[in-house]
Design a binder for these strands. Structure first.
Length: 257
DNA sequence: GCTCATGATTCGTG
DNA sequence: CACGAATCATGAGC
């Protein structure tokens, strides 16, 4: 474990090589930063581990010579066989090696905690950029009747948002379930994006997404709302008075990361 | 510090 | 295997 993590074993020049390795392995975004942070913490653990190890070794040697001296002194008053001395030394070494084992164990634990802290994606959670959320929401509300992007669409969205396909899938999974759970509130957002899309249509003359006109059984509009489904521009007094020209800047193309 | 939003994971299901 | 649902864990606003 410790060897695998580079904690035990030969020092690697302050972990510079490992850090370079990490940043090379980290594909996208700030994961490289996180990874190097992880590496930094790891090398810190390694440093402490080696320091402690050295300290124990030194202490062990000092204690051994101390005991040897004592025995030598005692040998003046009573006969002490070399075997006895050897046994004593062995006992001391055993004791110290068990302490070192404990040190190894606690270091192991520290590394485990570090790993779970940094490498567990759940802990690494970062909110997507506003732009990415916009793109995803735009797609979601444009395809409310069938919010299930195909693999290709997921890939395209992932590229545009600068996230992975997996993240796109996660996002849609979460979005669908949460939309259903809280349809009333989500409707406001839906209106917002519908209006935005409408504005986009009138401006550009075309929508970036295909609009399937038939609301499917899955994501039908919530009851008690406008009969038009996803209230397009007019807004029927849902509080979004200025929606038509809202502060959303339109960004048909994202800076392809 | 509490609460809510949100991305990720896990598990059961068709 | 994709999806829904529940849950976890973190980030952000207050």
């Amino acid at each position: 474990m410790l060897i695998a993590e580079g904690v035990a074993g030969p020092e690697k020049g302050g972990g510079a090589g490992a850090a370079a390795n990490a940043s090379a392995a980290a594909g996208a975004g700030d994961s490289a930063i996180e990874h190097s942070d992880y590496r930094a913490k790891l090398s810190q653990i390694r440093q402490i581990y080696h320091q402690e190890l050295e300290k124990y070794e030194q202490a062990c040697n000092e204690f051994t010579t101390h005991v040897m001296n004592l025995l030598r002194e005692q040998s003046r008053t009573r006969p002490i066989t070399p075997k006895e001395i050897e046994r004593m030394v062995q006992i001391i070494h055993k004791k110290f090696s068990s302490i070192q084992m404990q040190l190894k164990q606690s270091t192991c634990e520290a590394v485990m905690i570090l790993r779970s802290r940094f490498l567990d994606a759940r802990r690494r959670r970062r909110n997507f950029s506003k732009q990415a959320s916009e793109i995803l929401n735009e797609y979601f509300y444009s395809n409310l009747s069938n919010p299930y992007p195909s693999e290709e669409e997921k890939e395209a969205l992932a590229r545009r948002c600068g996230i992975t396909i997996n993240q796109v899938s996660n996002w849609f999974g979460n979005k669908r379930i949460r939309y259903k759970k809280n349809i009333g509130k989500a409707q406001e957002e839906a209106n917002l994006y519908a209006a935005k899309k409408a504005a986009d249509c009138t401006l550009a003359g075309a929508s970036p997404y295909s609009m399937s006109g038939t609301p499917g059984p899955m994501m039908s509009p919530p009851p008690g709302e406008d009969s038009m489904g996803y209230g397009i521009p007019g807004m029927n007094g849902s509080g979004y008075s200025g929606v038509g020209g809202m502060g959303y800047d339109l960004h048909p193309e994202s800076p392809d990361v």
